[in-house]
């Protein structure tokens, strides 16, 4: 009875959100999984379109098109994460050293994040146009021509290469580097000046100062940043949809393929299986992170 009085009111306070999250997150995930296991038939030809059960997942994972989409996702995610971390860290280090007009630079770097992926995508579709040569080139290719560097022209994400999605990461890097910079900047600012002074007194060079004193202390920030970027990249839909159009095989990732399954192919069962796979991939990344932060928080409290 006494224990109920201790945690009872707290439970009462959070119960609405527990119920809502239970229904609208976990309940719908359950419903999605259930849909993905259904057996479906074509109403006109009576052909089986989804055999039902685990076979739905095996069919999806065995599909060349899906494997191509997964490969694209891998390339996109790796290039996007590496690029964004590099630029974010570089800008943060530059700004952290106290340049004049830091506020202005910070805003400039952060601005792209205020633009929606769709709006940015429309501009980047033009910038990354595959057309080449003096008559046709527009966007970046035209810029390279005018600068007298025609060898830099590229088909970008439309090129016939397995790594074409690296080009699709460019707009995403442009958009999110500022955000990562802000995270790192906050991390650096959290380290007291005493430590730098102490390191300098001990004779550490600037490189050693960063390598052995500052970077180790922002590593939790780096981990959070990687997780944020990783799950954003895996769910990325709007940017790709607005740059490559609705039915692009070349730039297809699981999220855009899900749209195609659901609407043009009217195959909700396949789309649900695809959605479950995306959820599983994100979970593989996020759950270890949650466990890790849980542990460190407990350690911190103890």
């Amino acid at each position: 009875m006494r224990r109920l009085r201790t945690w009872g009111p707290g439970l009462l306070l959070v119960s609405p959100s527990i119920i809502l999250v239970g229904i609208f997150v976990y309940g719908l995930i359950g419903l999605n999984v259930q849909t993905s296991l259904a057996e479906t038939r074509d109403r006109i030809t009576n052909r089986i379109t989804n055999p039902g059960g685990v076979a739905n997942y095996l069919n999806l994972l065995g599909d060349d098109r899906y494997q191509h989409a997964l490969w694209n996702l891998l390339v996109l995610t790796v290039v996007f994460m590496v690029g964004t971390m590099l630029f974010g860290l570089l800008w943060a280090v530059l700004l952290e050293r106290g340049v004049t007009g830091e506020g202005a630079f910070r805003s400039i770097y952060l601005f792209p994040m205020a633009i929606s992926f769709v709006a940015a995508g429309v501009a980047w579709r033009w910038l990354l146009s595959p057309a080449q040569g003096p008559d046709q080139a527009i966007g970046l290719n035209q810029l390279f021509l005018k600068l007298g560097m025609p060898w830099l022209q590229s088909s970008w994400w439309s090129s016939d290469s397995s790594f074409n999605m690296a080009a699709m990461a460019i707009p995403a890097i442009w958009q999110l580097s500022g955000y990562i910079m802000a995270l790192f900047l906050a991390g650096f600012r959290g380290i007291s000046d005493d430590q730098r002074e102490a390191a300098r007194v001990d004779g550490a060079s600037e490189w050693q100062l960063y390598r052995y004193v500052l970077f180790p202390q922002v590593s939790p920030v780096a981990l959070s940043a990687l997780i944020i970027l990783g799950h954003m990249s895996m769910k990325m839909f709007d940017l790709i949809y607005s740059i490559a159009g609705a039915n692009s095989y070349t730039a297809e990732v699981p999220a855009t393929f899900m749209w195609i399954q659901l609407f043009p192919q009217s195959n909700p069962t396949g789309a649900a299986a695809n959605a479950t796979v995306i959820l599983a991939i994100v979970a593989i990344v996020v759950i270890p992170y949650l466990i890790y932060t849980n542990h460190t928080e407990k350690d911190g409290r103890a």
Binding site: Y249, Q265, N267
Partner: peptide, 16 residues
């Protein structure tokens, strides 16, 4: 629509 979508994919692939 489903057939159209599959053919569009094939054409998009071929274009590259």
């Amino acid at each position: 629509q489903a057939w159209n979508s599959d053919m569009s994919t094939a054409i998009s692939k071929f274009y590259r």
